[in-house]
């Protein structure tokens, strides 16, 4: 564990809690892509199957369970409890365009051709692109509430910090994981455009982020 890794985990947790609290307090999931949240729940489910096979640490187990629980709670709020506020008409990203290549790639490029390894690889590849329905929705409507942009900021920050963590681990432990690194870099690149808009628009005091 290093400071980048811990900060990355914390910002990931902060992002998820921001989103959950926003939906819970406003009793609305307007502007939130339910599809992205389902994909993230799928990411956690397929990656954390190792909860049943290996024990790493109490921290590791607790965080995995928390991420799983919070992601399912978010999906529940969007599709069940506050489904009347869900903007399904704007959440029109074709998820199969992500799932089919990701499934195919995880069968082709993995560390071992076993169900758990393929599912782990699938979760890494899927996480890299899971935010696309949300970014697509913002592009389509041309705006996002500031709290939604704070969520995206922390989610992007988490990924950027993980890259710093990998650089650190490479230098201190001579260890690196190519599948995780390539996917992590791809995922971070998706956020670059958003980061630019976040700093130039949201943090300059406007309530909403509007696209030009």
């Amino acid at each position: 564990m290093n400071v980048f890794r811990l900060a990355g985990d914390v910002s990931h947790l902060v992002a998820i809690i921001i989103l959950l609290l926003k939906i819970w307090r406003s009793k609305s999931c307007a502007g939130i892509s339910g599809k992205s949240q389902v994909l993230f729940a799928l990411v956690f489910t397929t990656r954390y199957l190792d909860l049943f096979t290996v024990f790493i640490s109490v921290y590791n187990t607790v965080m995995k369970v928390v991420f799983l629980a919070l992601s399912y709670a978010t999906v529940y709020l969007i599709y069940m409890r506050f489904r009347n506020s869900y903007n399904s008409e704007n959440d029109t990203f074709r998820v199969e365009f992500l799932l089919v290549p990701v499934i195919g790639l995880s069968f082709l490029e993995n560390y071992a051709f076993t169900p758990l390894e393929i599912l782990w690889t699938f979760s890494i590849f899927l996480e890299a692109v899971a935010i696309m329905p949300q970014l697509f929705m913002i592009t389509k409507t041309g705006e996002a509430e500031s709290i939604t942009t704070h969520y995206l900021f922390f989610l992007g920050l988490y990924r950027a910090l993980y890259i710093a963590n990998w650089v650190w681990r490479y230098h201190t432990e001579s260890f690196y994981d190519l599948i995780a690194i390539v996917s992590g870099v791809v995922q971070t690149i998706f956020f670059c455009d958003f980061f630019y808009l976040y700093f130039t628009r949201v943090l300059r005091g406007r309530g909403k982020m509007t696209l030009p």
Partner: peptide
């Protein structure tokens, strides 16, 4: 070889 990295990171 067992890869603990992937199970350690979240």
């Amino acid at each position: 070889e067992y890869n603990v990295f992937k199970h350690d990171e979240l």
